[in-house]
């Protein structure tokens, strides 16, 4: 049996115009509109994260490869007293692993992106296991910007949106954009909270 199409969801803009009922849960109406009026989350409209994010990831992998090479070399030669060809092979393996990780990180950084719509915020990430998280502004409890030392060096920031049932970690934003996004989220969340309070009378 072929499944039927999902029922038509109401358009946010249409439903928002419904007059507040009193009490709010008794006479609430939720009008239906045509499906093409509902804005869809377009996979092609995700904004990429800042290019500096890929550079930061590569820098971290490079740093790890240097530490790993030195560690393998010192432990292999001085502690375990291994033959030079063995140590060189081990170092080559470490470098090859780091190169693979670097390629993976680059691909992931290129795939990461966010999309802001009038009512929600979406973040896409993952290369092998892919994921798109969407958090409506009406559910944002608070927004935080974090900037670690490496992020500061690359002029980046992480926007952390928290709701009562999960959080969204938007990495790879440049400083200016993270500030603007945070302001936008907080303003929208505040406006919706006020609207909810008015609805409750």
């Amino acid at each position: 049996m072929a499944p039927q199409a999902l029922p038509t969801p109401p358009s946010p803009s249409e439903a928002m115009t419904v007059a507040p009922a009193s009490p709010p849960t008794a006479a609430f109406t939720n009008q239906r509109v045509a499906p093409d009026q509902l804005p869809r989350l377009d996979p092609g409209s995700f904004e990429p994260v800042a290019p500096a994010f890929a550079r930061m990831r590569l820098f971290m992998v490079g740093l790890s490869s240097v530490v790993g090479t030195v560690l393998v070399g010192v432990v292999g030669l001085a502690v375990l007293d291994l033959a030079l060809p063995v140590v060189i092979t081990a170092v080559a393996a470490v470098l090859a692993a780091c190169l693979a990780i670097a390629l993976f990180q680059r691909a992931e950084a290129r795939r990461m992106g966010y999309q802001v719509r009038s009512h929600d915020f979406s973040f896409r990430r993952g290369v092998v296991w892919r994921r798109v998280d969407t958090m409506p502004f009406a559910r944002v409890q608070h927004a935080v910007i974090r900037r670690g030392p490496v992020e500061r060096f690359f002029g980046l920031a992480t926007l952390h949106l928290r709701s009562a049932g999960g959080s969204l970690l938007v990495t790879g934003l440049d400083t200016d954009r993270s500030d603007r996004l945070k302001t936008l989220v907080v303003e929208r969340a505040g406006a919706l909270a006020d609207e909810e309070l008015m609805e409750q009378g």
């Binding site: 969801p9 109401p10 928002m16 709010p24 609430f28 509902l38 609805e199």
Partner: peptide
């Protein structure tokens, strides 16, 4: 497509309903 439809349906439910969720 169905997963996208379900996501949009739930989001529309959240965003078009201004009742308090808690």
């Amino acid at each position: 497509d169905e997963a996208g439809d379900l996501r949009d349906l739930v989001l529309a439910g959240i965003e078009s309903d201004s009742r308090a969720w808690m």
